[in-house]
């Protein structure tokens, strides 16, 4: 069985740097993608990735090992993203409207779209969903994460999370169906 996150944090605090690199390897994709789709911005997601892990390393001695490392980590990511989005909104109120990160893609009708195109279609559809649905869906995509855990990260009741995710998945399904009208 894999070493638990709490155990890796403990080893790191006791001086084992390699344990922290293992945590980074375990969660860099999740942190990056969570930030990426929350912000709709892959470049700022890279900054968040770095800031988050540096801040986790610095605050490790104060971490309480209660088996919820992932929730704790993702809440740090989310707070940073929310701060950025808040600043964006304040700025945008004074200037122009936002440009979506992922441009709309065109698919020729009467042809099944390929996996890469489908990914692009899902990315695009996801970027147009409300922030709440985007963040919940990325966590849902990380398939070892329970509704309970997602609710803990997003700080909402579990039933709300289920509803948000159901609606988001239905919206994505409709969006890719529109792109592949005659798929089987």
């Amino acid at each position: 069985m894999a070493v638990s996150d709490d155990e890796l944090m403990r080893r790191y605090v006791e001086g084992d740097e390699a344990a922290f690199h293992m945590l980074f390897d375990r969660y860099r994709a999740l942190v990056y993608n969570f930030a990426r789709y929350m912000l709709n911005d892959p470049f700022r997601a890279e900054d968040i990735l770095q800031d988050t892990f540096l801040s986790v390393a610095r605050s490790a001695p104060r971490y309480r090992p209660e088996g919820r490392f992932r929730t704790w980590l993702l809440r740090i990511v989310r707070n940073r993203c929310l701060n950025l989005l808040e600043a964006d909104r304040a700025r945008r109120a004074a200037t122009i409207r936002e440009r979506p990160e992922f441009p709309a893609i065109e698919t020729s009708p009467g042809r099944r779209i390929e996996a890469a195109e489908r990914m692009a279609a899902v990315r695009e559809a996801l970027s147009r969903l409300p922030e709440r649905q985007r963040e919940a869906l990325v966590l849902y995509g990380f398939d070892s994460m329970s509704y309970d855990e997602i609710a803990g990260v997003l700080d909402v009741p579990i039933n709300t999370v289920k509803t948000i995710i159901h609606r988001g998945r239905a919206a994505l399904a409709r969006a890719i169906q529109d792109k592949e009208p005659d798929a089987p």
């Binding site: 999740l30 990056y32 993608n33 899902v122 398939d143 998945r169 994505l172």
Partner: peptide, 9 residues
């Protein structure tokens, strides 16, 4: 969604 959540930076 599963593929996208695991994409490497």
């Amino acid at each position: 969604l599963r593929a996208l959540a695991r994409e490497e930076p």
